[in-house]
Amino acid sequence: MLESMVGAVELGLLYALMALGVYITFRILDFPDLTVDGSFTTGGAVAAIMITHGSSPLLATICAFLCGLAAGACTGLLHAKGKINGLLAGILMMITLYSINLRIMGKPNVSLLNTDTVLSAIADNEWAYVPVLLALALAVKLALDWFLHTDAGMALRATGDNARMIRSFGANTDTTKIIGVSLSNGLVALSGALIAQDSGFADISAGVGTIVLGLASVIIGEAIFGSRNVFRATLAALLGAVAYRIIYSLALRVELLDASDLKMMTALIVVAALVVPTLRRSMKQKALARKRTQELAGASSNRGGRS
């Protein structure tokens, strides 16, 4: 039990980078980007192929990140310059990446067993693994926080918040969108590269459902940890990814569920997380309206009675 929990936390911290990527598109740019299903695999594929061909694991991981940036930039270009609907742009890029990923790997599965990876130096040390992964996830989170508070990063945030306004102050919202989607997919590919190295293989179907997983992480994180400002929101995405993996490993223990049911469960979590707050808000609004109207009606009838 404890061992599976530790495993869940480890995996969660690696997936946290992906969740931070999804946070950029989904929450900052308000653009659910399906490219991630492809770019996650791309990250793993690039890292695995480079490592098995003898290049340094660190270089392979950096290249995976760069390939993710490029994939995201393509989606951003399709959407911003080609004026293709955001969802469709993501789908097109995801399909394209499926072919590209197979080209990169040459076969559907590449094994990394018995090869050195960026993680193998610490993987043997039980006590160091989680702290190192936590430090890595926090470092990426803090770097993202820093970026989002620079002039360029604020233009990116404003693009999702009020594009017309930031255009009137001279920012090119096409460029900011492309940068945002690119950065997002870079992080997703980085996460894919690390997870391939952690699990010992890259698989062509590794990325299936990444977007839903990322959304679930972001949403669960926000529900538990709040999202008052950028610092909190990125922390929520990070911890949400960990929380999701813990929920996932607990769900695996339920007799009723097969491992294959979990994608559906994840989707249901996302649906619930999207619908419930909307329902709650509208019910609250109605109750408040009723209360205020009654108060005002009461006040005016009192005044009427006195005169």
Binding site: D151, A152, A155, A158, R164, F169
Partner: peptide, 30 residues
């Protein structure tokens, strides 16, 4: 609602106005 970014703070909004005509780089906004 059109002239400001609602999810960002007053000082962040002003920083974006301040950056008009300048290059938006990696310097701290506020």
């Amino acid at each position: 609602m059109a002239g400001t970014a609602p999810a960002m703070s007053i000082e962040e909004n002003l920083a974006m106005a301040y950056a008009r005509g300048k290059k938006r780089g990696l310097g701290r906004g506020v």
